[in-house]
Design a protein around this nucleic acid. Structure first.
Lengths: 196, 196
DNA sequence: GAGGCCGTAAACAGATCGGTTTACCCGGAT
DNA sequence: ATCCGGGTAAACCGATCTGTTTACGGCCTC
């Protein structure tokens, strides 16, 4: 193990821990002591890697965008099938995940909500995450072969974001069943045929 | 002016001020001193009316739910027209409002995001606000006369919530154009005829 | 086995938080 | 004129926040 890897490993460990704590407790409401509690990592080490809390938050959001958001569709892509089936399976998957673990919303959006007008660098991650998801929906719509994949992809992204926020606010996965219906309707209207 | 009204007036003044400050700055990030700054109201008076900050926040959310959310559809209802036109006009109206003033999202949802798992009474207002808007969409769908107004109303609410959150994260009203398209498609599929 | 080095634990500093208290002022009833 | 209740402004309190520093401990090299 090289020194670089060891440092990166510890840095990554901090980021993962902070990721969970911030996700569950919010950014402002969660102090750095809470992030480090029972971790065996000292504050000094944290501040060696991340000179400010905001810096840590940005690293967490980078981790979220590059790791979680980028791989959102990996499970349904792995299962294969045509693009439309993947879109619908995606909503089923998210519903199942929420049934297993309470919804926490989108971390990027939460960051944007807390830091809009206060820290532009952090707030920007909300837009980045949203656009990343949107582009993946657009790509799938292109594969489906609809007339205007950009428009449809953005519409589906709107439905997805609304579903995520409602699933969290309502505390259950029920919005996903209406969302799947709505997405199916939108895909139908775009001229695709529904498959069994 | 009765004593009750005077007290209520000052109490309402505090709530309105807190409403704006919390909306712009977030709940945890905005201190009570910030709420009172340049208001000519002392902290003592605030704590006479609201024994804790959380109590104030709940009053703000009550004000939001009873005032803002309940009247969301008042402008389009006042203009009249059939129910479908009102739904579509609603999205146009929201887009125009966001063009005039940056989107701030839904205060109830923000509260739920910040206080989920931390203060149930506050977090519950997110669900309340969401269900209130949903019920208004459902009512309009009933007026439209679709087969399953409850399902369609919930679908449209999902689209609306997603649009609100994206408009804030992206910083412009562009999501509303796709949202209006999506809603029109959903209404079309539900068997209504589009009017000019 | 001695000497650095990296890290933890914990004390510490300064600012800010929610919330309380004190001191003072002003308008209205007597 | 006087008293009194309700209000502001501001000092104050303990807790908590971000961030720094001190003290100590184990590991690696020589």
């Amino acid at each position: 193990m090289t020194n670089e890897e060891r440092v990166g490993g510890k840095k990554l460990d901090i980021v993962k821990r902070a990721y969970d704590r911030f996700y569950d407790g919010g950014f402002h409401a969660t102090g750095v002591d809470t992030v480090l509690a029972d971790s065996g990592i000292s504050k000094r080490t944290l501040y060696k890697h991340f000179p400010t809390k905001e810096n840590l938050i940005e690293a967490v959001l980078h981790h979220y965008a590059a790791g979680v958001v980028q791989n959102l569709f990996a499970p349904v892509r792995a299962k294969g099938g045509d693009a439309r089936a993947q879109i619908e399976a995606f909503f089923d998957l998210r519903a199942a995940m929420i049934d297993a673990q309470p919804a926490r919303g989108c971390l990027g959006i939460k960051a944007a909500q807390e830091y809009a007008g206060r820290h532009a660098g952090i707030a920007a991650w909300g837009e980045r995450a949203a656009r990343e998801v949107e582009s993946q929906f657009v790509r799938l719509c292109e594969e489906v072969g609809v007339a205007h994949p950009a428009d449809l992809g953005r519409q589906i992204n709107i439905v997805f974001q609304g579903t995520v926020v409602l699933a969290q606010a309502l505390g259950d996965s029920s919005p996903f069943v209406q969302a799947k219906q709505a997405v199916a309707t939108l895909l139908d209207a775009a001229g695709t045929s529904r498959q069994a």
